[in-house]
Design a protein around this nucleic acid. Sequence first.
DNA 1: CGTTGCTGTCTAAACGTTTCGCAGTATTAA
DNA 2: TTAATACTGCGAAACGTTTAGACAGCAACG
Lengths: 349, 349
Amino acid sequence: MTYTMRDVARLAGVSIATVSAVLTGKKRVSDELRGRIEEAMRALDYHPDQVARSLKSGSTNMVGMVIPDVTNPFFTELMQGAEEEARRAGMSVMLCNTDGDSAIEHRHLDTLLAHRVDGILLSCADSFTPWERLERRKVPFVFFDRLPVGFKGAAVALDNKAAAAEATRFLISLGHRRIAIIAGSQNVSPGIARLEGFREAMEAAHLAVRDQYVRCGDFSIEGGYTSGLDLIGLPTPPTAILSCNNKMTLGLMRAMAEKKAPCPGAISVIGFDDFEWSANFSPRLTTVGQPTRAMGRKAMEMLLDQINGHQTSPGIVIFPSGLNIRDSTAPPGEMPSEWTSSLPARSPA
Amino acid sequence: MTYTMRDVARLAGVSIATVSAVLTGKKRVSDELRGRIEEAMRALDYHPDQVARSLKSGSTNMVGMVIPDVTNPFFTELMQGAEEEARRAGMSVMLCNTDGDSAIEHRHLDTLLAHRVDGILLSCADSFTPWERLERRKVPFVFFDRLPVGFKGAAVALDNKAAAAEATRFLISLGHRRIAIIAGSQNVSPGIARLEGFREAMEAAHLAVRDQYVRCGDFSIEGGYTSGLDLIGLPTPPTAILSCNNKMTLGLMRAMAEKKAPCPGAISVIGFDDFEWSANFSPRLTTVGQPTRAMGRKAMEMLLDQINGHQTSPGIVIFPSGLNIRDSTAPPGEMPSEWTSSLPARSPA
DNA sequence: CGTTGCTGTCTAAACGTTTCGCAGTATTAA
DNA sequence: TTAATACTGCGAAACGTTTAGACAGCAACG
């Protein structure tokens, strides 16, 4: 049996309005009554019902966060930042995982709206993310990382074009000429912008972007793997590859290990998204890092501003990237006729 | 402006009770009225308010899931399994991350209870997890992975003792005698049971468990790192190390790389928790794998059973582990006086 | 001493649903 | 024909809060 305000009021000999007053703290209550009420709450082990409170007050103190892949540390680090900020404001975060499936995303959004969350943070599954619906329903929301094409509202993102261009220029500066890219889904902003940055940097260096060097890996391990196999199998394979997210990089490295293509011996690799395991990869990965936690915090901060009606300038907040140079990149070598034995020795014999 | 059942009822020319009837589907409604009502709902773009519904019906169709580390793929894979199962039952999952901090865990539990979730899945931050409180409040709950010591209720866990013993026996079978363990927190079940399994396997083989070979890494990267440094720095270092979770293994590998201790040349490593990146580590990691998704599904299934009052036998469901033998384990070699140059070559020169 | 204003408490009406019990009406049995 | 029996739909009372407005007590003021 769980007690209500009514029980507390009766025990303390006051009206429920007074109990509510001490609970919300919005009205003054005499010390005597406050004491009696707090005493009664303790005696009954009373806990307010957030559901009833939400119904009446119209706000749930919950925000929804929708991400495409909960097993990707990139997104969960963003979530940590966001939650940190939310906690400070007394809000809790309801995390929803879409697995990149827009049908699931749709259902999650429905559920969040049905539960009357105060706001939504989302990184969309594809370009069809129905954000017009969110606007129509007048719920505050902020996109992060993956925005739908053409979206102009509140959002947080990396300077994807500059990041890809920087990574590409780094490869060029090492001496690479045949550079390939495993791009992400072209339905969402990072996929598009990173490819653009790559193209621009290549053109600026007067290097050709060959069609067969541009692959789409859909941000998945599988996509990175098959793209990797394709590129390695080309008559003239690239000497360097830019991979546009961590999962695809993982797939690419698997493909290279399987085909015994040494990295960076035969092919240099640079991947988007730095994460805890990057430095323990074989070889240690050169990556484009993102300030994930800060981005999560900022997105939540913007959302809370909207929720609280602080009309700040909506728009896209851009974060800078950083290049982490490690061992997966090197100047291009001569092309070995056979790729063998260049994997780490199994034991120092 | 958002519409309510009242508006739908008025537009369709029926009572709100009838609208509710078609919504819940628990009562029969004539085809004619049903048609008019559905039409009206569509016209107004009506969406039921889950908050109000929860208040009246007493159930929120939400379950809470509390985990110690949202950036650990082990837990998020469990979450995927759990969510899959929840979705099938029309429930949504509210994920809470404690960062292993029991104060935060406490707050999360409060929030979940306040929001009147229908049930809670949790992996505890430490042994002080207040599960008596959950029992007192009569909310269904199921522990997974990390249970508090002495807990006897519904739970899902790995057969930790057997898993640790198997891993240890494998190292012994390779010829190792000086085997160390980086154990997890001794406040929670996996930490304790894995150490126990290690001890039993060692004793069964009549091998000594030296005190200085038993380190506690608290399930963190940092803990694995410092434990690793300690072990490597010992006058007589071990020839093999069993690391009790993925984060500590990562820390250990960092320590070894830093100290230029070749793996498996000088020290073999076997780590708990297999995950996507394991096979791309340097070297490819030998691991104790867990059926994470299945465990997540099972935990949720048990929770839903409790919620729906299907009184199944509560108790602990144990899952078996699997050994993934890769390149981080090998027979012990002679001990090199100096550990150098055995890391993967930076480039094939 | 009657206003006025302030304080602290209470009463009662919401918030948007679900659901119980009842009232019509149509169907069937006698 | 009447009585019993479905079957639909409706009115109204909850669920546990918040909050506007009423009101009583009291100090300060002219």
